[in-house]
Design a protein around this nucleic acid. Sequence first.
DNA 1: AGTCAAACCTGTTTGC
DNA 2: TGCAAACAGGTTTGAC
Length: 326
Amino acid sequence: MPELPEVEVVRRGLADHVVGRTITQALLTGERVARRHEAGPADLMARVEGATVLAVDRRGKYLWLVLDPPDDDPHALVVHLGMSGQLLVQDADAPREKHLHACFDFADDGPQLRFVDQRTFGGLALTPLHEDRYGVPLAAQDDPAGHLHGIPEPVLHIAPDPLEPAFDAAGVARRMKAKGVAIKRLLLDQTVVSGIGNIYADEALWRAQVHGLRPASALTKPALGRLLGHASEVMTEALGQGGTSFDALYVNVNGASGYFDRALAVYGQDGLPCPRCGSTVRREQFMNRSSHFCPRCQVRPRGSSPSGSSVSPVSPVSSRSSTRRP
DNA sequence: AGTCAAACCTGTTTGC
DNA sequence: TGCAAACAGGTTTGAC
């Protein structure tokens, strides 16, 4: 479940279902799921045994279980869902998923935590926590339980996401303004701002009426600030709908889908009318991925092919075409 | 340094 | 109908 709202849905599910529980056994299948864990899957399995889950934190698309291990050396179990990863809370006797790669049992004999991943771009790693470069304190004073927070090693290079207190929109806008690269590239660059993927990049650009190929330096700082505001807003709205899912691959810890796909303006809507002006939404390849945009609301920068002089005015419409999902 | 394509995978949809 | 190609929410790597 890739982008920020979907990962946050999972984080909340884990906070409800695994915090406070003690792991009695971990079972990882194959080498690949722990390929980012230097010491290998056997080491990971051995070291989480007996650990209690203190909290579940997230930055961008990364999430991690803060562990209180028996040897008192604070660590986090970092999870990235990749393109198709799922964390599921399942009864121990529930059938084994086809792409199950990791399974955690708890001392209370309650439901298991399972990591299921069809495409195996996701994975698990056990790493120490570090002081944040961006302002999250290693020991969170405002945590009533006194739990250790901070940022795990594989997440240190990731910038804050728009939904966390450490996010500095003006600072990000300033950094973007200094670059001559396409604005969509920066929205997707997790070291500039994290959590935004292909869906919410396209939706934020549409809301801001900016074409993704526009050089960031050609936008004003206020315009960049507005774009980041739209990104934050669209992801908050998606979170309120349980995230975006087109199929059963993107589900919460209970296996349920979110509903934000019904509210998408451009992503996956090629050939359908723009909800704002009625022009036909286009899909084009740029940056090696599909980009969806309204050719009228989002003016292509000069010089980018195909030459964009063929945009004809279309009278505004007040409601969506019937070809859209009702 | 910055940009691009390829690589990592499996499954589904689309096109001939 | 069958088969192949294209495509999918992400990140990292290495080659220019």
